[in-house]
Design a protein around this nucleic acid. Structure first.
Lengths: 148, 148
DNA sequence: CTTAACTCCGTACTTGAGTACGGAGTCAAG
DNA sequence: CTTGACTCCGTACTCAAGTACGGAGTTAAG
């Protein structure tokens, strides 16, 4: 006989808001729970684990849609399908990492120049951004136009 | 006597769409251009540089609002203010980098386990995500709850 | 029995960076 | 002088992941 929660307690327990639970419900991320006579939802511990799964996966960069598909493979029979999803995610993470590293380099350089040349006629940071054949241009192309 | 463009040519030249130009206009990211008699906008080369500035800054992770404030410092007199903005941005980039590195580690581990234990009863990737006291838990806390 | 707290539901709003739409005006070529 | 391409404008829509609202029903305590 599992312990049961109302949505408010459940949400607090899972570390999210009531609205988020209802939202996940609509999205099909957590099962439609049984209801008490008045129509009030009754959750149990397994639902909390489910929400934690969602949050853990989210912290690894999965979108709710991706998490939904991960959950559809939940029985372990489709382990390799899950691995494929995770591998694609990992590849995406590595791309974003590379982007960010380049950004860090450029931004760091600009900040340093800005410090070094303080009092210069023109702000090196801003003029670098403005100058389309400056150092930045090379980076601009290598960073490319894809939005994270 | 600078060369002048209609909005269509200008947008193509700057590598964006007409709608984007109009959008930037509304946002105040590019100046309100002069108009020909029929009310048609006339842009020149300096406007293209401006759009390139926006795009370059965007590639460094600045939001349009941040770019707008950067543009307000354009005269170079406020070089150190621009530097502060860039330094904050750089700090943010470094936080995101650290996050992503942790994510890469965890995701990489999960994928490896998944490969190694193929045919196991339970998918290690999914059960790791499900198990709130697994290796993941530590990472979950260190990764933290901030969304990029 | 009343009151407060909680839950129900659908709907609308938020943010950021654009995209899409649609009717009207304009411009250059033929 | 008509045709087709382009431009004007405001408005509404997109996506993601929720958040907010508001009126009605329910439940537990006093």
């Amino acid at each position: 006989m599992p312990v049961e929660f109302t949505i408010g307690v459940f949400a607090a327990e899972a570390g999210v808001t009531v609205e988020t639970i209802r939202f996940y419900q609509r999205k099909g991320l957590i099962r439609e729970p049984s209801r008490a006579l008045g129509g009030i939802r009754r959750y149990d511990a397994s639902d909390i684990a489910r929400v934690r799964f969602v949050k853990a996966a989210q912290n690894l960069g999965f979108s709710l849609d991706e998490i939904a598909s991960l959950l559809r493979l939940e029985d372990g029979a489709h382990c390799d399908e899950a691995r494929v999803v995770a591998e694609e995610k990992l590849a995406g993470v590595r791309v974003r990492l590379a982007d960010l590293r380049r950004i860090e380099t450029v931004l760091g350089m600009l900040v340093d120049e800005c410090c070094a040349l303080a009092g210069h006629v023109r702000c090196p940071l801003i003029s670098a951004l403005q100058n389309q054949q400056g150092d930045l241009a090379e980076f601009r192309f290598s960073i490319g136009g894809h939005r994270s």
